[in-house]
């Protein structure tokens, strides 16, 4: 009880004095990392890499307990976070699904009931086809799809999620028409492409790298404003930086990336938010983090505070537009 009162007091003081983000708050008990995917998923890897870095560099005194709450595409974890309002010892890991899920399904939380802490990386999306397909570039592939609408199969992870949103954006931008097939995850979509059961997918680099190396599939372009980093060749002839951006390749989509985000429950002291933002910032500066980013070919981008809010607002608006147009908004 005493503890709760003193927190409340701290919160009140922090709020009244405008809460200059001085990180003098510290966790007083083990911190729970809530992962909004099942073990083995992309978000799970993200959270566990952060955990391993914190542990290795002893960035925090208190131990970390990781729990997976991936039910309902991650909604389970976010609702759990919402219910824990005021608890500064629960850190939730997700993607942009934190603020996009409530649009497409009737869920018992609203994005503003969570406190954004940081976005630590942007995962990229690429357009992939089978290696022995007769398309040399994105343009010729899109032309082929246009010539025979509703016959080419685009695979992706889940429904009404990033992959399908991107597919919808491609269709809008090029007036090609795909059949979108939702699979349980990006890995499955990758293997289905390698096996020739679908014609293309929009997987993240990490999900398809193995098959690309093996020469089963090949990337056509990346939905990023600039080319990817990394000069090492993945196959005999190509490396990540040799993949053209989709804009260069003739698909007029500037940018489509998925932020890896970290949240706290609502109603937590500003000091706690500052503490974690600072902690995660330190994590993002370690060599292990750089290595994770490079290995998964994500874009290293640390966002917190006002930058993060701005980013979320614009990403939210962009996606919402697609959802509305496709009629995915759940009522």
């Amino acid at each position: 009880m005493l503890k709760k009162t003193s927190w409340l007091l701290a919160t009140t003081i922090a709020v009244t004095f405008g809460g200059v983000a001085q990180a003098d708050w510290k966790p007083a008990k083990p911190v729970e990392f809530i992962v909004t995917s099942s073990p083995g998923g992309g978000t799970d890897n993200f959270a566990r890499v952060v955990q391993s870095i914190i542990a290795k560099h002893k960035l925090m005194e208190q131990p970390i307990v990781v729990t997976n709450k991936g039910g309902g595409s991650g909604a389970e974890g976010f609702i759990y976070t919402k219910v824990a309002a005021g608890d500064s010892h629960k850190l939730t890991f997700g993607t942009n699904n934190a603020y996009l899920l409530p649009y497409v399904a009737k869920l018992a939380y609203k994005p503003d009931e969570l406190t954004p802490v940081a976005a630590m990386a942007l995962d990229e999306f690429l357009l992939w086809v089978k290696a022995d397909a007769p398309y040399k570039d994105a343009k010729s592939y899109i032309e082929a799809v246009k010539a025979k609408p509703d016959t080419f199969k685009m695979g992706g992870s889940q429904s009404k999620d990033t992959d399908q949103t991107l597919t919808s954006l491609i269709q809008d931008a090029t007036s090609a028409k795909f059949i979108y097939v939702p699979f349980q995850g990006g890995g499955a979509a990758g293997v289905q492409l390698a096996g020739g059961h679908i014609d293309s997918n929009t997987n993240n680099p990490n999900e398809n790298a193995g098959q690309w190396k093996a020469g089963a599939i090949t990337p056509l372009c990346v939905f990023s404003p600039t080319r990817l980093q990394g000069g090492v060749k993945v196959t005999a002839t190509m490396g990540w930086s040799d993949i053209p951006t989709c804009k260069e390749a003739g698909i007029p989509i500037d940018q489509f990336q998925m932020p890896r985000t970290v949240w706290l429950p609502g109603g937590v002291p500003a000091d706690a938010v500052a503490f974690y933002a600072d902690l995660l910032k330190k994590v993002s500066e370690t060599p292990e983090w750089k290595e994770y980013i490079e290995r998964t070919s994500q874009t290293d981008r640390f966002l917190a505070g006002q930058d993060l809010k701005t980013f979320i607002a614009s990403d939210d608006a962009k996606n919402r537009k697609v959802f509305e147009q496709e009629g995915w908004i759940a009522r």
Binding site: P39, N45, A209, K213, A214, A216, E291, R295, T296
Partner: peptide, 16 residues
């Protein structure tokens, strides 16, 4: 599935 997550964290990319 969990072990595969582990492989990625150890820096190995599962695949052919």
């Amino acid at each position: 599935a969990v072990m595969m997550g582990g492989l990625m964290i150890w820096g190995l990319n599962p695949g052919p």
